[in-house]
């Protein structure tokens, strides 16, 4: 699926096959996808359709069986693990469904974690991090531990952590899947704000048609493929059209 912007991510004929006993299980079957710079894309599909696998492939965590993946102009899997990790560090921010915060660190430290990992000293940037926390509505929770926060708050910390290095690409794996509907709405608004104000490329994996409708483009994944006529762009993106595609694909 092509984009009219400069692509930041480009997948060409990506296939992922798992060995399941005596037969192979093809999870992704020839995916072609481009994500343009500053584009907000939703990825929808039923459970087991390969959404998370696709996200991992884009993140450089799962080498495809065949096909090429380009991130920021670099062929991701032509690099070795070390270089791939450095590329991920520089280009990608992650928001996970299950938060994945370090329980022993407080909120501020969790937000600063990617900088520590990058070998930077974030101590001079505390004001920036607090600003980020203010943006996600958690300025007053800077020194609380994850065990003291609600699901929605945890997800907002995760978003702040994903943004701390200002990565050009944000990968969000069902960020509203583990929070209440109201909290989910607030989180989606935050994504929209980030996209609007920071001009970030966002790939949002979701089950929820209302969440998906906030994107500029919606891509549907069915049994490891992106079926023809299953991409909604621009003005096509609304809840009713998304629902009709889902019905057409029997999702």
């Amino acid at each position: 699926m092509m984009t009219d912007r400069d692509p930041i991510v480009c997948l060409q004929d990506v296939r992922v096959t798992y060995s399941a006993g005596d037969k192979d299980l093809e999870v992704l079957e020839g995916i072609d996808l481009e994500l343009g710079a500053g584009e907000f894309v939703s990825l929808m599909g039923q459970s087991g359709s390969g959404k998370s696998t696709l996200l991992n492939v884009i993140a450089g965590l799962l080498p495809p069986t065949t096909g090429t993946v380009t991130l920021g102009g670099e062929a991701l899997y032509a690099l070795d693990d070390h270089q791939r990790t450095l590329l991920r560090r520089a280009h990608i921010g992650f928001v996970f469904q299950f938060f994945n915060l370090v329980p022993s660190l407080d909120v501020l430290e969790n937000v600063a974690l990617p900088l520590w990992i990058a070998g930077e000293d974030p101590q001079g940037k505390e004001a920036e991090h607090r600003e980020l926390l203010e943006m996600v509505g958690l300025g007053h929770r800077a020194h609380h531990h994850p065990s003291e926060l609600s699901g929605g708050e945890l997800q907002r910390v995760t978003l702040a952590r994903a943004l701390v290095t200002k990565p050009p690409l944000l990968l969000a794996d069902e960020p509203t899947g583990n929070v209440s509907a109201k909290m989910g709405l607030e989180i989606l608004e935050l994504f929209e704000r980030v996209h609007r104000e920071w001009n970030q490329t966002i790939l949002l994996v979701t089950h929820n048609h209302r969440d998906a409708a906030r994107a500029q483009r919606v891509v549907f994944l069915n049994d490891g493929r992106i079926p023809r006529d299953s991409v909604l762009t621009g003005t096509e993106v609304d809840e009713a059209r998304i629902l009709s595609v889902l019905q057409k694909l029997e999702i």
Binding site: L61, L86, R88, R89, N100, V102, P114
Partner: peptide
């Protein structure tokens, strides 16, 4: 395992 996987996902190389 999960914490370390997170470090790796956030950009920590094996060598680090």
């Amino acid at each position: 395992r999960r914490e370390i996987a997170l470090y790796r996902a956030l950009g920590m190389t094996r060598e680090e």
